[in-house]
Amino acid sequence: MKSLITGACLALAALGVAGTATAANPLFPKLYTADPAALVDNGRVYLYTGHDEAAPDGKDFVMHEWRVFSSCDMVHWTDHGVPMKALDFRWAKGRAWASDITRRVVDGKPVYFFYTTVEHATIPGFAVGVATSASPTGPFKDARGSALITNDMTTQTNIAWDDIDPAVFVDDDGQAYLYFGNTVLKYVKLKPNMIELDGPIQTVTVKDFTEASYVHKHKDRYYLSYSQHFPEETAYMTGPSATGPWTPGGVIMEKNTGTPTIHQAIVAFNGKSYIFYHNAQLPGGGEFRRSVAVEELKYRADGRIEPVAQTEHGPASNPSAGCR
Rank of each mutant, 00 (worst) to 15 (best):
L15D: 15
T20Y: 15
A21Y: 14
A23H: 14
N25Y: 02
P26W: 00
L27S: 02
P29C: 04
K30H: 13
L31Y: 12
Y32S: 04
Y32L: 01
D35R: 06
A37N: 05
V40C: 00
V40A: 03
D41G: 05
G43H: 05
Y46A: 05
Y46R: 04
Y46E: 00
Y46L: 03
T49I: 07
T49N: 07
G50R: 05
G50L: 09
H51T: 10
A55Q: 09
P56I: 03
P56Q: 05
P56N: 04
P56H: 01
D57V: 10
D57P: 10
M63I: 11
R67A: 07
R67G: 09
R67M: 12
V68L: 08
S70Q: 07
S70P: 02
S70W: 03
S71F: 06
M74E: 06
V75Y: 13
H76T: 15
T78C: 14
H80V: 10
V82H: 04
K85Q: 06
K85N: 11
D88A: 06
D88Q: 08
F89H: 08
R90S: 14
R90F: 11
W91C: 03
W91R: 00
K93S: 12
R95G: 15
A96F: 09
W97I: 09
A98R: 13
I101F: 01
I101T: 01
T102L: 14
R103W: 13
R103V: 13
D107C: 07
D107W: 06
G108T: 02
G108H: 06
P110K: 01
P110Y: 00
Y112I: 02
F114K: 09
F114I: 10
E119D: 12
H120L: 04
A121G: 10
G125V: 01
A127Y: 02
A131S: 01
T132K: 03
T132A: 04
S133A: 07
P139C: 08
P139A: 05
